[in-house]
Design a binder for these strands. Structure first.
Lengths: 148, 148
DNA sequence: TTTGCTTCAGAAAATGATTTTCCATAGGAG
DNA sequence: CTCCTATGGAAAATCATTTTCTGAAGCAAA
């Protein structure tokens, strides 16, 4: 029972096994999964699981503001992030990995933006993309040819 | 002849009228257009223009690093940004508008990230989303139902 | 428990953005 | 002028995501 399932319950939605499982993956994973990744991860456990169910649940969580979307990481699919604390995502353009990164300065940035722009800020998507340390070293051929 | 067309030429690509026109729109527009928006904007001028041509050109520019992509702004389509200087994009979740915002602090953020993460940073996507001042005031119904 | 209403998962079809394929042509090199 | 490659356009293909429809629970009230 984590923040996500509690949120669903408080909203009056049913805690079905599928939803609980999806929430669990989101809450525990550090790799910012896509709907497809969640689907495959749960298939052994729920052989009849439908991708539509995953998408529906993710959209519910998103519309409730319980998860954020990062946009695609070069693989053409939407990545989800259950970590709502302001943080930076580092995307490697070669291996398509996404990792979190904490940088205290961004709190100040958000404050400044909020005050100077007049926007009512609901969320942020701070993504830096480039080569991760590992791919910088490997330097040569692409590790995965990407899914484009 | 702007930075984009020069870039295409230097890469040995032909400066066709279509490409020049697409570059022109990218270089001049402030509203971070999608492929579809560019397509419609050019249709009067090039009645036989194909969406595929727009996408191909945009992908060329993107792979050359001459434009950035912002991810979708809530309308399910990729938005392009020809302004490569580090800046913030503010997305209004109600009217789907995208505006630039300058905040000096982000230079320091990027420096810090680069040094502490070990990543070779090639670009950034810094998007804050929420309600723009106008939509905060109007408060009620959606202004535009999306740009499809 | 039984009745009736509402929500949900799943399958399949639909949608819509983006990409690919194929072909005729325009431009440049020699 | 001739060859060769890059290009635009039309149409088909892809692929992620959404919608529709249906039957099966879950829940409330009697």
């Amino acid at each position: 029972m984590n923040r996500l399932t509690i949120g669903l319950k408080q909203a009056g939605l049913r805690l079905t096994p599928q939803r609980v499982a999806i929430c669990k993956i989101l809450a525990e994973s550090k790799d910012h999964p896509t709907a497809m990744m969640i689907y495959h991860q749960l298939l052994p456990q729920f052989p009849t699981l439908s991708l539509a169910t995953v998408y529906k649940t993710l959209n519910v969580l998103k519309s409730m503001g319980l998860v954020h979307t990062l946009g695609d990481a070069g693989d053409g699919a939407e990545h989800f992030d259950a970590d709502l604390t302001p943080h930076i995502n580092l995307v490697c353009v070669r291996c398509n990995s996404v990792v979190d990164f904490d940088e205290g300065l961004i709190h100040a940035v958000q404050q400044a933006v909020e005050q100077r722009s007049g926007y009512e800020i609901q969320g942020a998507r701070i993504v830096y993309y480039g080569l991760c340390p590992q791919c910088r070293v490997n330097g040569t051929a692409k590790q995965q040819e990407s899914a484009q």
